[in-house]
Amino acid sequence: MLDVIKKAVKNGQKNLSEYESRLVIESAGVFVAAGVLAKTRGEAIQAAETMGYPVVMKGCAAELAHKTEAGMVALNITNAEEVAQVFDDLAGRAKNLDGILVEKMVKGSREFVIGLTRDPQFGPCVMFGLGGIFTEALKDVTFRVAPLTQEDALEMIDEIKTKKLLGAFRGSPAVDRNALAKALVGVGDLGMKYDSIAEIDINPLIICGDKPVAVDALVVLK
């Protein structure tokens, strides 16, 4: 079993922190933005300088499932002074943080969502659909029962009403369908492999160039 899951189950966590969630979905073949969990101001600055600006900084702890609401997310940070300032600010807002997650800011206007749910009828199921603020309003999502074949995943991609957004669209290239399908298959496999995972929510998954990149992820435990 992945160490982060094992440890979290042992600690009685309800969910994984964003950093831990990233590790889990990355192991399943989902692209994530470059990211470092910084424990000190110095580590944060070094990470930002290495990955290049702009960056995003987030307070990271398992208890912080709703970071934005808690004011623990800072976007579009463009230099070392700002990194230092934001680090101090975030670190001061909450106790018991695992660290501050410094992530390369992913740019892209096309947002999707990938989820894993456990359906009482079908067991682990993968969801894919339109992400961001439209997820709730348009409910343009589709499901498949895990495990998924690559063909199942490609079929899902073709099934959403907003599939046009996945083609070449307003100057953006067509999404790498195989990479996206691989991510869907991988998330389904996590559901088959780890009984302790109750659900996974990857929202948004931003199409950056032609690659689907997870920008926020939450793994909920049973």
Partner: peptide, 13 residues
């Protein structure tokens, strides 16, 4: 009845 969207996806699959 269960979650219809899940059922419908499972049927297609």
């Amino acid at each position: 009845s269960g979650n219809y969207r899940v059922t419908s996806g499972a049927f297609r699959q």
